[in-house]
Write a protein that binds this DNA or RNA. Structure first.
Lengths: 251, 251
DNA sequence: CGCGATTTTGAGCCATGTCAATCGGAGTGG
DNA sequence: CCACTCCGATTGACATGGCTCAAAATCGCG
């Protein structure tokens, strides 16, 4: 709702991210650069509307967004996150109000004009293809989320989410292999993973005492990335060494 | 894999279903009818490939399909079902092997030629629009599934699934308000709802003793449709009368 | 320095999972 | 027609993961 126009920030990173996400050539990316003075901004907590037309996209250049359904009784299910380098397309805001997009932090982004995605003859440009590809990738993440909720234990779900976020942020240069910052409360995590806040806290404590993972002041630190990756893959972690073998469950 | 060409079966019902699902005019539907002699068939258990091209669709005219990811250790998560009148598009079989489509029964369907979905000038025909719309509807169901797994109790999940299937089958004339047949084992249901087979059985027993729902010989009977609908909507069922108040949990 | 939001902890309970066994129907072969 | 087998449904006993309630500890902030 609250839109301002501001000068360029992490625009380059977002472009690089889009390129990485969608497999774009450097020359294609350059054609987007002029857009950076049309930057839009939303404040934390604002609801973000999806573009109406199917052929339009909104590229997020900085900030975190979550996609959720809000239940009448105040509960909510978070379906996923939109990060810098990701695209918002009409699908997100579609009819039947399946979900809303809410800014978790201050968010900046640009609308990519239809002309850049669809050539005059009605065919898609390489950029359009790349964006469609990026959108498809986002859809695939839905399957992962379903698997996470349907088959994973609490510890596995948490590991899976952390690894997903790290990998995505990594591609945009916002994470290293073992750390990134995330503006998430434990309540967000709980609403994403289908767990209670209290149980999320407990799993975090376990991870901390295992020296697996810590979250402090919005900074997520992966102390043993490989082990977390294995957990996230649903590989029944057997050998629980060192710390004292609290860790995961045995499926 | 096993494809045969056979004469027309429930082709009309599938067309009517597509029309209902996608909001198609009767005249548009008629243009599909000539396809009915290109019918393809798969045997139960066969894997169904998605069309490769984005603009092609495969219309299912009879039979049940489930979409799942198979885990290396033999477990599986069922993401959803494809029913008569539904479409399979390239998205389903996309790269990264997110899921496979497996025939639960004998399945029949037709490939809709690209020419019917996309006009020579590259724009979508009304039929193409309708099919895209139907596909979008299928995507929306993904959100419902996520909510079901993330926020619902076992009883609510079961009710939600039953209502979803009833409503979809109803639109194709394969269900009445209080009964339909479904080729699902309790294991399929469990893998869909993220529960153990045994617990599915327990919930079914509870429903049976509540006179809410029975499943016998593949026939699903909704004894109290309204109550089930309320349960499926996640409305914390309060008044548990009659039977003795076993029913649902209190969130 | 007090307040609201968030994190942490503890105690106890219930829903759900696991293990083990029985039962019933549908084929199948003799 | 019967014995056998396989698969799915059913049941019981038991273990436990995850939830609820309640309260303290911390943090961010005006």
């Amino acid at each position: 709702m609250s839109r301002l126009t501001r000068p360029c920030p992490a625009f380059d990173a977002a472009l690089a991210g889009l390129a990485a996400n969608a497999g774009l050539g450097a020359d294609e990316v350059e054609r987007l650069r002029p857009l950076c003075d049309r930057l839009e901004m939303w404040t934390a907590g604002a609801q973000i509307e999806a573009p109406r037309r199917t052929d339009r996209f909104r590229l997020i250049t900085s900030g975190w967004i979550y996609e959720a359904r809000l239940l009448p009784d105040g509960r909510r299910q978070i379906f996923g996150y939109v990060l810098p380098g990701d695209l918002i397309c009409s699908r997100h805001g579609a009819r039947a109000a399946p979900s809303v997009l809410l800014a978790l932090t201050r968010v900046e982004g640009v609308d990519v004009p239809a002309a850049l995605a669809v050539a005059p003859d009605g065919r898609r440009t390489p950029l359009g293809d790349a964006m469609a590809h990026a959108v498809e990738k986002q859809e695939l993440r839905g399957y992962d989320a379903l698997l996470r909720l349907g088959k994973y234990s609490a510890a596995e779900r948490l590991a899976h989410l952390v690894i997903e976020l790290r990998d995505r942020l990594c591609r945009v240069g916002l994470a290293s292999r073992e750390a990134f910052r995330a503006p998430l409360t434990q309540e967000h995590i709980a609403d994403t993973l289908g767990l209670s806040v209290i149980h999320v806290n407990r799993v975090l404590r376990t991870f901390r005492s295992c020296r697996l993972l810590t979250i402090k002041f919005g900074m997520v630190t992966l102390l043993q990335p490989e082990k977390l990756e294995r957990l996230a893959a649903g590989v029944a972690a057997s050998s629980a060494p060192g710390g004292g073998g609290p860790g995961a469950s045995a499926p």
